[in-house]
Write a protein that binds this DNA or RNA. Structure first.
Lengths: 341, 341
DNA sequence: CTGTTAGCGCTTTCAA
DNA sequence: TTGAAAGCGCTAACAG
């Protein structure tokens, strides 16, 4: 038995009234008699009627769904941001269509196509590290879909943006390492071609420069990936230098923790021999030993803000004048993997 | 300027042909002349036409979208499972609507309502720890929407299920601790009312029983939450006992790591004084020091399998005879937080 | 080879 | 107070 879902027509037939009357009764239209309303509502209740959003969306050209395109969802950062977005938009009756791109431009392009074809009302996205062309973004905008860029930035593309001051976070971390006496500070950078990798690296470089420290080229490496395995490998290379570093500032916590694990394995002490600072403040970073010093970002707030900005656009329509570019401040969290001041 | 998206009608008017001809040309219908096809396609290309999935879905009563309802998405387990599901269904042209319930039955009920009203083709879900009523599941089934239960089980509710043998995983972990000489083995259990909490606890109990060990009631605690903070608190209580445990088997890795951090803070050594084993094998667990012994689960495979089962139902229709109940095997991973055999 | 018509489920004029 | 009809964008008979 194929049980397809109840429609207004089904109920209209049952009650021998017209579809429009049923519709109006359900929506509490003033011009419907109390008895008719009661009758319809009872039946709707009994038959478990659910309105077909598809039909409504087609009619109103509004789906109440928002696309979220992110490089991945397994890390703490994006997962938390998505949760924040979800919390914010759910209250306004919106649903989320989440599509991870796995850091691939192709997948990102496809994600945008999908979202356009299902007519999402807006898109919050964080570009993949491979993304070089902005055609898919522009196409969305051209179709009247508001976009909010999140965390990572495409310099040449104008839209609402919610970012974090990565430059400043990196600067804080590096300056702090310097103040605690570190001199040969290595930086494990994130994948090149990523705005945040670039900003964190330059924050580091600037802090070094501000304190008159030269950066040994050997100490500036770029990781291709984001995992602890990558961190271990890079730490191995770093520890094989004739002149090993006395501190490492890593692009993120997994990288930092991977590096730390290698360093401990080869018998060096953290932070006595080598200080380590990460970035992101993942939930477990406070609980490992030594606990990881890192740069905290207001992830949840960023997600909320991005969602808020999008909802504003959606509600106020085209009236908002110019794009917003919000930059939130990160904070250094000093723990056990670096020396005290 | 309100730029609404291009429709077949727009193009038909432009080319002075009928809508159906445009439709057929685009779908490469055999009975359309090559020139017409070329003409239509050029225009579609130039105008960046994207078919409106809403209209198609309404017509075909098929949305090519799958609902995913999970307690949360910020943890490694569900995030990875979702990624697996996504990878699997994307290849078949399906989209995912992900709704986290935050372990709340109310939110879960609302999630199901939402998914029904947008007519998802199927739902993969993991019930919240608060869920006691199965009405919302039954309603979905009543509406002909296939359901696949994931990771957590509702005993009284029949559907396709993809689970892991938590009982066995817990048994392995506990038996291993016993074999390495531990006797007073504590268990930090998960929230009560959760099938996996129950199974892990009973796997632990059975292993103790199998080896003729009594379980001191003080050593069997139930955590209300899943985080390292909870783990720390419980470890504090455990370490205040007159007779402290010589091992802890925790419901999950965050709990284990929280417990470990407290134990290290009060000057006990892991594993010399106290062995610790977790559950989940989160990515960072191998990189902390001491590295965490834990029970690995085939998360990605579980996600793929759940998606596969759902896709089969979706494609084969009602013809599949009975529900599948797949139980995958976990594996103990011995690392540094427990003694060697 | 192409056009006309009907219909997916719903809301909304316009009539009665 | 209610019903009939049109239309959202698309496809699929059914005609020509």
């Amino acid at each position: 038995m194929k049980k397809s879902q109840i429609t207004l027509a089904d109920m209209a037939k049952e009650l021998n009234i017209s579809v429009s009357t049923v519709s109006r009764a359900l929506r509490n239209h003033p011009a419907i008699s109390a008895e008719t309303k009661a009758l319809v509502r009872q039946l709707a209740e009994r038959w478990q009627y659910e309105p077909n959003q598809l039909a409504l969306s087609l009619l109103h050209k509004k789906t109440f769904s928002i696309g979220v395109v992110v490089p991945e969802i397994t890390g703490y950062f994006f997962a938390t941001a998505i949760t924040a977005i979800q919390d914010m938009v759910a209250a306004a009756g919106y649903k989320l269509i989440i599509i991870p791109t796995d850091e691939s431009e192709n997948q990102e392009v496809r994600a945008f196509q999908t979202l356009m074809s299902i007519r999402v009302d807006g898109i919050i996205f964080s570009p993949s590290s491979q993304t070089r062309s902005y055609h898919h973004f522009e196409k969305a905008v051209g179709n009247g879909i508001p976009l909010v860029m999140f965390d990572r930035e495409c310099e040449g593309f104008d839209s609402d943006k919610v970012l974090v001051d990565d430059y400043n976070g990196a600067w804080q971390a590096t300056e702090y390492l310097i103040k605690t006496g570190c001199r040969r500070i290595a930086h494990i950078g994130g994948p090149p071609g990523l705005s945040i990798s670039h900003h964190r690296k330059h924050g580091y470089l600037q802090a070094m420069r501000d304190h008159g420290l030269d950066v040994d080229a050997c100490l500036l490496v770029e990781s291709e990936g984001f995992t602890s395995d990558h961190g271990r490998e890079i730490a191995r290379d770093l520890m094989n230098l004739t002149n090993v570093p006395d501190a490492i500032f890593a692009f993120n916590d997994p990288l930092a923790i991977g590096a730390m694990s290698w360093i401990q394995d080869v018998g060096r002490r953290v932070p006595e021999d080598i200080s380590i600072v990460g970035f992101d403040d993942e939930p477990y970073s406070a609980f490992i030993r030594p606990s990881l010093s890192t740069v905290w970002q207001p992830v949840y707030d960023m997600g909320m803000l991005a969602a808020k900005i999008l909802l504003d656009r959606l509600q106020v329509g085209e009236s908002l004048p110019s794009f917003r570019r919000e930059i939130l401040k990160p904070e250094l969290v000093v723990r056990g993997s670096s020396k005290a001041l």
